[in-house]
Design a binder for these strands. Structure first.
Lengths: 125, 125
DNA sequence: TCGCTTAAGCTACAATTGTAAACTGTTATT
DNA sequence: AATAACAGTTTACAATTGTAGCTTAAGCGA
């Protein structure tokens, strides 16, 4: 994913992306509005603005039917792995293992997390 | 670290923080300026603004001597572990292991990283 | 067919951020 | 002492972000 795509997804916009990622198919504004209006307390106009901005920046595709249907142009995995790499670059001087070390040394991991990780790296072997 | 501290350190401000974290002692503006002016191409005025904003938001302390000397009010570890948790909350729905899984599955880790991690979780045992 | 609802597009506006100049007072140098 | 240089403070200004209203046109129910 290019820097000028994901880097520009803001916090509010991300809420819209999350919704679209959950949906199996493209959604009309109505469906998006229904969910975000309650969960986020946003006005319809706000939601429309966020969608428009996401379309402009190429993070969401629109497909013309009766009304427009919207779907993500990038997958959640693409985005999250981009965001992770971005964090590593900006904060951990490019060292991924420093990120994980930081997690391990700062009660950032639950017991289950640690168990999962142990498995993960056992299997790798 | 409280949310309203670290969350507000912006990208440009972070460059100043990094410099202060590297320094063993508090630094006067002169020293900060010398390093950032060249590496970042910032005007002295820009650097002063960033320092002021960091002081206002409590991320940097100033100590009056002849001129002010500036030092970080939060450690790099505090900040980076806050930033990591923030990423996990915002993007990985609070699951730290999802972050690591994403790293593992997206060529985000070098061979050395993986070796280090294997050690990390071997030792944990 | 006539409104009502609402999608789509345009405009708005305050807060934050990136970047920096202007002003003011102090210090160091000649 | 006069001046240059610069720290500290205030102000500036455009771009981005969060939040939302207004207008226009179209579809849907009575």
């Amino acid at each position: 994913m290019s820097d000028n795509l994901a880097s520009k997804i803001t916090d509010s916009e991300l809420e819209v992306m999350k919704l679209l990622w959950c949906a199996k198919d493209a959604l009309p504004v109505t469906a998006i509005r229904e969910q975000l209006q309650e969960s986020k307390g946003w006005e319809p106009a706000t939601i429309k603005t966020l969608i428009s901005r996401l379309v402009s920046k190429g993070a969401v595709l629109q497909e013309k039917r009766n009304v427009y249907y919207y779907s993500p142009a990038i997958t959640e995995k693409e985005y999250s792995s981009w965001a992770t790499k971005d964090l590593i670059t900006r904060i951990f001087n490019g060292k991924a293992s420093d990120l994980i070390a930081s997690l391990v040394n700062s009660d950032g991991l639950s017991q289950e997390d640690i168990a999962e990780l142990r498995d993960m790296f056992k299997v790798e072997e």
